[in-house]
Each structure stands twice: as C-alpha cells, then as structure tokens.
Design a protein around this nucleic acid. Structure first.
Length: 465
RNA sequence: GGCGACGUGGCCAAGUGGUUAAGGCAGGGGUCUGCAAAACCCCGAUCGCCGGUUCGAAUCCGGCCGUCGCCUCCA
C-alpha cells in the first residue's frame, strides 16, 4: 500500500506521485489578516501541517509555502474603522500568526509571501494575461475574461451557464461577463495603492496566489491546499489565471481541501460572527488539545466544536500521556514482553495504513490508543527495559508524526518543593495509618489541581487541568 | 433555485461488499487500593427511513426524511 490522497480536481482517491520526487511543492492558502485568527484557521493550518509531517515521515522533501493576504477590502475597511494604517493592521495580525505557529506546534512554512511584497510579480502576471487576451482593462480595473478559459469550472464542478443563472444581483455593467473577476483594482482615494501600467491600484484577491505560487514554486506544483470554502471561486480562479499564464496544466496536481469547523451548542458565538479565536482557546487549553480535536475526525469532513468535544480531547490527551509513565518492572523476556513487541510493531503498521489512506488521522489515532493499552497492560505485567522503552519510543514517534507534543504539563518550578513536602508528610501519616489527615491533604491538593496517586513505588502527582 | 457533503452505541468518531462494526469520552460491573486515583478486565450499537442489486451490504443503486457547506473577495 502506498499513499493515496483525495483530489478535489478528480473527485477521486489517487495514488500520490509527486512531479519531481522526493520533492513535494505544497502551497496552502493562508488567512486574510484583518482580524484575530480563529480556530477555523487553526484547523486548516493543522490539517496541512499533518499532511506535511506525514509526507516528510514518508521520506518526501516538502517545500511549503503559505501566504498572507495583507491588503484587501476587509483590511482597509477595518483599518478605517479603527483609524489605523491598513498595512500596520495587517502586520499586527501577521505577527500574531507566528505566535500561533509556535503555540500550535506548526512546522513553519519555508516561505510566507505577502501580497504587498509580491506586487511586481503580480503586475507582470496581469500584463501577460492581458497580452494573451485573457484579460481586459476597464477604467483602471483589470478583469479576467472567464469565457476565454475553456477549463473554467473544472475544480468546483460547475459550468458557466449554471453560474450565470445563479449570479447575484449587483452586476457590474462594465464587465463583459458577470463572472469575470478583478485581477487589478483601481485605487479609490485614501486606499493603499501601487503604480501599474493601468494606473494606481492594488491586486485582486485571486491573482496574488497565482503570482506567489509561480514565483516561489514554479509553473506547476504538487499540492494546493485550503478550506473547502475556497474551492469556488478562489481556487477556480487561480487555476484559470495560472494555467492561462503558463500554458501548462495542471497548475496543481493535487487539490486538497479541509472541511469547515462548525460551532455546536450555542453559547460560544459572539454577537456578530460566532467564533472562537485562537488566543481565546489557548488561554484555557494547550495546543495539543485543539490538535487532538482536529485529528479526531477526517480532515475533509466538517468538524463540530463545542465544550464537550474539548473536554473529551483533554481527557484523551491525559490518557496518551499516561502511557509515557515509566515502567514499574524490569521484565524483558517472557510472554508479556513478547506480546508488547508484537503489538508495538502492529501498531506502527496499522498507523501507516491508516495515514496512507488519505491521511485518516482518526483511524490512525485509534491504533495509537490500542498501543497505549498495550503499553499499560505491559507495565501492569511488570515489563520494562528494552521492549518497554521501544514501545514508548514508537508511541512518541507516531504521535510526533501527527504533531502532538505530549509534553508533561508545565509546572511552576517554585511550587514543586511545597508539593513534594506535603506528599512527604502525607506518606508519614499513611505509615501511621492516619487516614483522615492523609486524605485531607490529598483532597486539598486535588482542589488546587494536584492529583495524587499512591503506587507501590511511592506517591506520584500531576497537574489535573 | 443550482452544485456538493454528511446522517454509525448517551456524546465524538473510524470502517465503505463477507471473521466477534476500531478508538476516545461518559455510564454500569469487577480486579488492584486503607479508601481513592491511575491502570487493567467485562458489559453496551445491525449502522436515518423505504425499496432495489447481490449468495452476502453499514458499505453499491434509487427514492424519501434530516443536518450542513458553497454559489456573496471567509481556512
């Protein structure tokens, strides 16, 4: 079995065969930085982070590009509302994004292009499209001539007639066809603008991605990713621009799209847009928790999000961590040890099979949890030494491939001696069978978030939430 | 209205033609424990509804019901 991926372009599962192995050129649409990033953005970033990690685990060399749309209507409007410079506003949220990259344990992309730093390439591409007859100028705007591109609609599975029928009201009479879209927009007073052969203005939304793609990755790429909401019109338009520009197809060999995150329950909505920002999530939970939520279902399906889902993930994470506790015995031979070796090897095989099947992370996680049980069972049976260490190493290898860190929960160093001291006293009380007092200490610590566990090897503790 | 997706135990969620339908969370019963906790063991679903194809379907086809996404510069 080899890696297969679902390609939105063909609507089928296809064997993954990059154009120039072991290299894989991957471009993922990033956010428009006009407001704080929310967990939907995080979901998409995590999905493609896992894609990248798994490809690398499989021996591919991934060149990963993610863009920032740092100038557009939304940014300008928001900046005007706040009375700040649009580019400063964008810069602020870009900086925040990099904080999220760290907190969510995302592998940094190799390039983070921005519209404002790609203007010359964009202008060149627009000019070429004009020269080739794929575009036309109207009052300083430049529009893409959709009907000229014969493959239009192949990604989203629509045809021009259907689209025209459903076209919305505000038709711009200056356009040859209602579906023609802007490659370049003439500047209105007060807007950020760059000089161009068609007068001062700024790029349309779709052209930036085509230009950045071409500049950083070349005529054709292996993987183009983004949310399903971008399939139409954004990615459809990217194809039209890029393939018309280079004359080569496909522009991207594999189109991968993640499903949308949906908020369930009710509360979480903010009066306006019913969203949870990444900062809000991270204020209460560690990054692994959200990643585990994303991994728990298939990336192409909608992801339901609510408090219960978060609580479940929190618990599941505890269970993963629990398997990393040290062994209590030293048994390296015998049935239990042999069984652990066998189950460890099996878990890795099953994990690979699941991931090879279009990144089936939910299935892969199931196999990881089966390994967790095998490790715990072995620990109970007194297995230690090499087989135990190897099983735990495999667990870490697999979870790290999914981008889970499984770091022990951070503990403020200065409280540790106090907790240890209380445990010492409690142990003394237990020796004297002073159960009431001993339990009182345990209960109080539990209230403070320190969970005690008495084992034959002594008392251990950990943070509980 | 058009295009598309989904509907699996209390909740989340794999499985997509054929042994006992993964796994996580919650719940019940045990083992362990001074009592707990953790861990381990056991218990629970015939797969939205109807019809069809097939020796055989949760898994393929059709219809219905329900939920959702996109079609409006949102990952």
């Amino acid at each position: 079995m080899s890696l297969h991926v679902y390609n939105t372009l063909s609507k089928r599962l296809e064997p993954f065969e990059p154009l120039d192995p072991p290299w894989v050129k991957m471009y993922v649409c990033g956010p428009t930085v006009y407001d704080k990033a929310h967990i939907g953005h995080a979901m998409s970033a995590i999905v493609f982070d896992v894609v990248r990690r798994y490809l690398e685990y499989r021996g591919y060399r991934v060149v990963h590009v993610m863009n920032f749309t740092d100038v557009d209507d939304k940014i300008i409007n928001r900046a005007n509302e706040l009375g700040v410079d649009p580019l400063d506003l964008a810069q602020k949220y870009i900086r925040e994004w990099f904080e999220h990259v760290h907190a969510l344990n995302l592998l940094p992309a190799h390039y983070y292009p921005r519209v404002t730093l790609t203007i010359p390439q964009i202008i060149h591409m627009v000019q070429t499209l004009l020269d080739k007859g794929y575009a036309y100028v109207v009052d300083g705007d430049v529009y893409y001539r959709v009907r000229k591109f014969k493959g239009y609609g192949k990604l989203s599975g629509r045809n021009l007639d259907e689209l025209r029928a459903g076209a919305r009201v505000e038709v711009d009479e200056r356009k040859e066809d209602p579906l023609d879209f802007a490659l370049w927009k003439a500047a209105k007073p007060g807007e950020p603008a760059w000089d161009s052969p068609w007068g001062p203005g700024r790029p349309g939304w779709h052209i930036e991605c085509s230009a950045m793609n071409h500049y950083f990755l070349g005529d054709q790429i292996d993987i183009h990713g983004g949310g399903t909401d971008l399939i139409f019109p954004h990615h459809e338009n990217e194809i039209a621009q890029s393939e018309a520009y280079t004359g080569k197809e496909p522009f991207a060999k594999y189109w991968l799209h993640n499903g949308m995150l949906q908020l369930r329950g009710e509360k979480m909505s903010k009066s306006l847009g019913n969203l949870v920002t990444i900062d809000e999530f991270l204020a209460e939970h560690e990054g692994d928790v959200f990643r585990l939520i994303v991994l728990s279902s298939h990336y192409r399906k909608p992801l339901g999000y609510d408090d219960e889902v978060v609580a479940d993930a929190e618990k599941a994470l505890q269970r993963l961590r629990g398997a990393l506790r040290p062994p209590v015995g030293e048994e390296e031979e015998g049935d239990a040890a042999a069984r652990l070796r066998e189950r460890t090897a099996h878990a890795r095989e099953q994990f690979l099979a699941a991931m090879d099947d279009d990144f089936n992370t939910a299935g892969a996680l199931g196999h990881i949890f089966t390994l967790v049980r095998a490790i715990n069972t072995a620990r109970d049976a007194g297995v230690g030494g090499s087989p135990f260490a190897q099983a735990q190493a495999t667990l870490l290898e697999l979870t790290h491939t999914l981008g889970l860190e499984l770091r022990p929960e951070a503990v403020a160093a200065d409280v540790v001696p106090f907790i240890d001291h209380l445990i010492e006293i409690r142990s003394e009380l237990r020796k004297q069978k002073q159960w009431a007092l001993a339990d009182r200490i345990r209960d109080r610590l539990a209230q403070l978030g320190v969970a005690l566990e008495d084992t034959p090897q002594g008392t251990t503790w950990r943070w509980q939430r």
